[in-house]
């Protein structure tokens, strides 16, 4: 799978120690390196619209074990997958 996904290396150096990606966002690394390896073509985006959201059971910021479907208690929800809170 990995070798079927193209890495987006468009963009290049800009002022100072920074680089710029294809959409003009500034960044400390060259496009396509380190944490900046982002897809250009198709890439997996998980379960489709219409499917039940797969179970998520994980520890939260207070140390509590959370089962998302149980915890939301029948309410609609927004579930964000992001890269990191640290960097």
């Amino acid at each position: 799978m990995a070798d079927e996904i193209e890495v987006d290396t468009r963009g290049g150096p800009t002022t100072g120690p920074f680089y710029e990606d294809a959409e003009g966002f500034n960044m400390p690394e060259a496009p396509g390196t380190g944490s900046r390896r982002i897809p250009r073509g198709d890439f997996p985006t998980g379960p489709d619209v219409g499917q039940r959201l797969p179970d998520i059971v994980a520890i939260d910021q207070t140390g509590r074990l959370v089962d998302v479907h149980e915890d939301r208690d029948g309410q609609p929800a927004v579930v964000v997958f992001y890269r990191s809170a640290v960097w």
Partner: peptide, 14 residues
């Protein structure tokens, strides 16, 4: 992950 966001309804469907 490839970052992204899912919105689900009260039944848990995306």
């Amino acid at each position: 992950p490839f970052p992204g966001t899912f919105v689900i309804d009260g039944e848990g469907a995306i």
